[in-house]
Every structure is written in structure tokens, then in C-alpha cells.
């Protein structure tokens, strides 16, 4: 469904992506792992068009994303940002229903509010949260609201950028389980970037490891545990010793 071919991106002298090749099948949950600063977020933003690659091609069902009509293209995506990226000036339900209150999916405010409350319920939040502002929520609740916003318009593809960063282990487990359930239930294609191995095991159908600006390894979670690749083994076991320098 999503294919990246020889994608490169540099910021000045820093060549973040140096020819990334990756494909994700429809309905598959792909998790991209890699150390901090290896370009995972940049890769995700390239697919969404938030960052323009220097070269290479990214296609969504065979169509070059750089030539796609932006609104129609973005309407197929949902995204959970690392810090949730909720709009401070809007109430929780207005955040969740943002896409339903404007643009081509616009509907009456009451109908949009009902959908928002339903999506909040889906991520384990009660209707009493709907009229609060994001600043009144805990980090875990903000992540759940971000997740509700990502699924509000029932997208075909959902991106998760470091979904458990900053959360305690229990809340991380809750978010991981929610992501897995929602992706399976909606039949959506998912692309998650994380370095939390618990998330990887809970969410992934397949795993890709990004290192040195390239996809170094891909496979299932079982294959990941069994692979002799020293980079993958060092990363998944969190060893300081190995081919990946600990000081970068």
C-alpha cells in the first residue's frame, strides 16, 4: 500500500535519510525502530508531505504522493503525534472532531460532538472529559485524546509517532493495547515509530530497523528475536556494547 523507494533527505550537511526502501502492505502494522536521531520522524513526515524528500519516490497504492491532491490524500491519514499536539485553545471534543467541523467532512456541530464522544469512549475516556481543555488533562489522557482524534474520521492509514514516550509502564501498556485493538478493528494500515520494545512486541506485524539513513533490517517480531544481525540484537537488548556507537 505504501512504498518508499530510494528516499533521501538531508538537512545541511546532515544526511538523515540516505536511500530508504520500505514497503507496507494494506492492513499491516509496521513498526520502525532505531536510535534517536536516525531519521524515523523525518521518514514519517516525508510520507505525509510535512517534509519534502530530496530524492526518491513515495507512493500510496501506486500513486506518487507528491502529485496527489493534498486534501484528498491527507483525508486518508490519521496521526498521533509524540506530544499529542492537541490544540490548546479548543476543547477536547473540538480537538477530536476537528476534521469533522471543517472541510470536506464537515457536519453539524452536534453530530460532530456525538462522534467525538463516541471516539473518546473508544479510547477509554468518559463524556465528562469532552468539555475540558487539553491543559487540564494528564499526559496519558492527552495521548488518548490524540488517538481519538487520529481515528475520528476513520482513516485508512494511521501513523503513530513515539506513542508511549513520557508515559508510565502501565499507561504505555494501555496505549499499546488500544493501538493494536483499533488498528485490527478498523482494518487500517499502521506505521509506528518507536524505540520502546514493549510497544514493538504489542503493536507490530512487521518491524523495520532504521540505521545510518537506511533500512538495515526488516522482518516479523519472531524473526527480530532470532536474527543474528548485531545491530538489531544490540538495539532490542539495549546493550551499550556493539556496532551502534553509544555516544552519537
Amino acid at each position: 500500500m505504501i512504498a518508499l523507494t530510494d528516499v533521501t533527505k538531508a538537512f545541511g550537511e546532515n544526511r538523515v535519510l540516505q536511500g530508504v526502501n520500505l514497503s507496507i502492505a494494506r492492513g499491516e502494522s509496521m513498526v520502525i525502530i532505531g536510535g534517536s536521531g536516525t531519521g524515523k520522524s523525518v521518514l514519517l513526515k516525508c510520507v505525509l508531505g510535512l517534509v519534502t524528500p530530496d530524492s526518491g519516490q513515495i507512493t500510496l497504492e501506486g500513486e506518487d504522493v507528491s502529485r496527489a491532491e493534498r486534501d484528498a490524500f491527507l483525508a486518508r491519514f490519521g496521526m498521533l503525534f509524540q506530544g499529542a499536539a492537541l490544540f490548546d485553545s479548543l476543547r477536547v471534543w473540538e480537538n477530536v472532531a476537528f476534521r469533522l467541523l471543517r472541510g470536506r467532512l464537515k457536519r453539524p456541530r452536534e453530530a460532530a460532538r456525538e462522534i467525538a464522544i463516541e471516539k473518546l469512549r473508544r479510547v477509554g475516556l468518559g463524556p465528562q472529559v469532552a468539555d475540558l481543555y487539553p491543559a487540564e488533562l494528564s499526559g496519558g489522557m492527552q495521548k488518548r485524546v490524540g488517538l481519538a482524534r487520529a481515528i475520528a474520521a476513520e482513516p485508512e492509514v494511521i501513523f503513530f509517532d513515539e506513542p508511549t514516550t513520557g508515559l508510565d509502564p502501565i499507561m504505555s501498556g494501555v496505549i499499546n493495547d488500544l493501538i493494536r485493538e483499533i488498528v485490527t478493528e478498523m482494518g487500517a494500515t499502521a506505521m509506528t515509530i518507536t524505540h520502546d520494545m514493549t510497544s514493538v512486541r504489542a503493536i507490530a506485524d512487521r518491524v523495520a530497523m532504521l540505521h545510518g539513513g537506511l533500512v538495515r533490517w526488516t522482518g516479523t517480531v519472531q524473526e527480530m528475536d532470532a536474527t543474528p544481525d548485531p545491530y538489531v540484537q544490540q538495539f532490542i537488548h539495549g546493550r551499550a556494547e556493539g556496532p551502534i556507537p553509544s555516544v552519537r
Binding site: R70, L74, A75, F77, M79, F81, L86, D88, F98, R149
Partner: peptide, 17 residues
């Protein structure tokens, strides 16, 4: 500026706005 550094502007774009 705060919206930019907290990725809220990126979020706007992904929400087709």
C-alpha cells in the same frame, strides 16, 4: 511559535487544514 514547537502546526496540516 508554541504551536509550531509542539507540532500543532504539523497536526493542522495532517488534518487537511
Amino acid at each position: 511559535g508554541t504551536m509550531k514547537v509542539t507540532e500543532q502546526i504539523d497536526a493542522l496540516v495532517t488534518l487537511s487544514t
